[in-house]
């Protein structure tokens, strides 16, 4: 219950959230976690090379036509790469720790200093700083490293959604200004999308930039079409070439946003578990849909299956 206090004004969202809360709890599915469903569950682009990792790492430099296999330092639950640091691959490891490669996945080191034990099921690299790494540990919180994994500190507890703490299943650094001297980190959780400024002041809903102004002015709120309430968000991608363009993989399908996650449209209606977007071309998308790896060159309007690995 919201408490009464002198300045409390009910907001549309607070009321909406309260109303949805009950339905969401009832509908909470057995959560499937990105990357844990067998081999090759996480995707990333390292420049033009497409990486697909799970038990092993598969890489393709010809748009998914042919693949080569590489060893990993352990089973991988999440991958991240950076436009300005070709060859750097960051991998969240099921056995704990974060794997780092500087050569596209050929050789690895594992950073654990300051990280507690436990699986690392989501990782991200700061969009404006390739040495700034984020890692999520289920049941614990969000950790950050400012020195490419040499040392880690707790950045923030887990997000709170629908009356409980939720594990981030996916993380992505989105190069959109927070107005606090930094940019946003978006997290897909077991019950939906949330985000935190990279100064880590608080987890919050994705809202239109001018929502507060509209509220104060009494104007009609800007349009919103959030991801389906209560559904897990298994994977997230934002292209540095067009950071307001986001892609999200959910059990209900693949979703896309052109405005930083306020309005979403469904682009694939089959269950999706992983998504990645090319660093220089926000229309070039790779996704695991059903059990197949598929590629789209037109923002998800048409898809082709990648060759079997």
């Amino acid at each position: 219950m919201k408490m009464i206090e002198p300045n409390f004004r009910p907001t549309r969202r607070a009321v909406l959230t309260a109303a949805l809360g009950i339905g969401v709890l009832a509908a909470l599915p057995g959560v499937a976690r990105a990357g844990t469903g067998g081999a090759n569950g996480s995707l990333a682009f390292d420049g033009d090379a497409l990486l697909s990792a799970g038990g092993t790492l598969s890489t393709s430099t010809d748009g998914g036509a042919t693949w080569s296999e590489r060893a990993l330092p352990g089973r991988v639950l999440a991958l991240a790469t950076h436009r300005d640091r070709p060859g750097r691959v960051v991998a969240g490891l099921a056995e704990g720790g974060v794997g780092f490669s500087e050569d596209g996945g050929a050789t690895w080191r594992v950073g654990t200093a300051g990280l507690p034990d436990g699986a690392v099921n989501a990782v991200a690299i700061g969009s404006r700083d390739p040495d700034l790494i984020y890692a999520a540990i289920p049941g614990d919180g969000l950790y950050k490293s400012e020195d490419a994994g040499e040392s880690w500190t707790l950045a923030m507890d887990r997000p709170w959604l629908d009356e409980a703490e939720r594990d981030p299943l996916a993380l992505v650094s989105v190069d959109l200004d927070t107005g606090m001297g930094g940019i946003w980190i978006y997290a897909g959780t077991e019950t939906g999308l949330t985000r935190v400024p990279d100064c880590f002041c608080r987890w919050q809903d994705v809202q239109p930039g001018n929502a507060m102004d509209a509220l104060v002015a009494g104007d009609a709120p800007p349009p919103e079409n959030p991801l389906p309430a209560g559904e897990p968000v298994l994977s997230l991608a934002s292209s540095p070439s067009s950071p307001e363009r986001l892609y999200a993989a959910l059990p209900s399908g693949l979703w896309a946003s052109r405005d930083g996650g306020v309005v979403w449209t469904q682009i694939v209606e089959e269950s999706a578990s992983a998504v990645a977007v090319h660093p220089e071309d926000e229309t070039y998308v790779a996704a695991i849909v059903g059990d197949a790896l598929k590629l789209s060159r037109d923002s998800g309007m048409t898809w082709t299956a990648a060759a079997a690995k």
Binding site: K2, E5, P6, N7, F8, T11, R12, R13, A14, T17, R202, Q204, D205, Q207, A211, M212, L215
Partner: peptide
Amino acid sequence: KNGVEAVVAGYESDMPAFGA
């Protein structure tokens, strides 16, 4: 003056609003 919900709509916090 107005609490954290004045800058993040719908946010619940223990920070009191000091406007009064």
